[in-house]
Computed example of a mutant assay.
Amino acid sequence: MLFLKSTTVTKAPGIYEVDVAAKPPGKTFGVFMATDPDNPPNAVLAALAELGFESVHQQNYVHRDKGKVLDMHFQKDGTDLFKGWKAEECTSNLAALDALFGNVGIKITPRVMSLAEAYA
């Protein structure tokens, strides 16, 4: 679940927050989004599906400021060991995500999670 400060401001229509993160060692990234369930970012969700990212988790909750949130996690299998991404897959997938979110005005910064965060 992403840490949201508020649901009064969106980064793009229907999107409160986006995190592109990988568990250590950091070759295969997932997309974590906090969205507005009453105003879903359908174009972004469709584009993620076209890129091969599949929804692996969804959870609705009410933020402390009373706004509704749908927390969504997406992943894409690769061709490396344990369905991970090879180096060239990582490069092309991150470039595609950067373009997708850049088109809606969101700058992504891919990161590697800490061990505590990844396995909590």
Rank of each mutant, 00 (worst) to 15 (best):
K23P: 02
E54N: 10
I108E: 11
Y61A: 01
G105K: 11
T91Y: 03
G67S: 08
A99H: 15
E54G: 03
T8H: 10
K5C: 10
V62G: 06
D77S: 07
T35W: 00
E17I: 11
A43R: 03
V44A: 08
E88Q: 07
N60K: 00
Y16S: 01
K107P: 12
A116T: 15
A96I: 13
Y16F: 06
S92V: 13
L48C: 05
L100V: 11
L2E: 14
V69E: 05
K11W: 10
G52R: 05
H57P: 03
E50W: 06
V18S: 03
P25A: 04
D98M: 13
A12Y: 05
I106C: 01
D38M: 06
V9G: 02
N42C: 08
A43Q: 13
K107D: 15
V44H: 00
A12Q: 02
G84E: 11
E17S: 09
Q75T: 15
Y16V: 03
L70Y: 01
G30Q: 08
G26V: 05
A46G: 08
V62T: 15
G26N: 05
S92I: 12
A34K: 02
D77L: 09
F3A: 12
D38V: 02
T79E: 04
M33I: 12
D38Y: 00
A96G: 01
L115N: 14
E50T: 11
K107R: 12
E17V: 06
K11G: 09
F29V: 05
K86S: 10
L97S: 09
F82L: 14
E50V: 09
A116M: 15
W85E: 13
G84D: 11
C90H: 12
K23M: 07
S55K: 02
D65Q: 00
E54I: 13
F32M: 01
L45I: 15
F82M: 14
T28A: 02
S114A: 13
N42W: 06
L94D: 06
P24R: 00
T109F: 14
A46H: 11
E88V: 11
H63T: 05
G14R: 02
V44K: 00
G78K: 01
Y61K: 06
F101W: 05
F32Y: 02
A87I: 15
T109S: 13
N93H: 09
L70S: 07
S114C: 11
E88M: 07
E50N: 08
H73G: 04
F74K: 09
I106H: 02
D71N: 10
F101R: 06
N103H: 09
D98V: 13
I108D: 13
T8C: 01
V9M: 12
K68F: 12
K83A: 12
D36F: 00
I15K: 02
I15G: 01
A21H: 03
A120P: 12
R111T: 14
F32E: 04
A46D: 15
N60S: 03
K76C: 09
D36M: 02
V20Q: 05
N60H: 04
N93V: 10
I108A: 11
A99D: 14
V20H: 04
N60C: 01
G84N: 13
V31E: 04
A21Q: 07
T109C: 12
T7I: 11
G52Q: 05
P13L: 04
H63G: 04
Y119E: 15
D19I: 08
F32C: 00
P13Q: 07
S92N: 07
G30L: 06
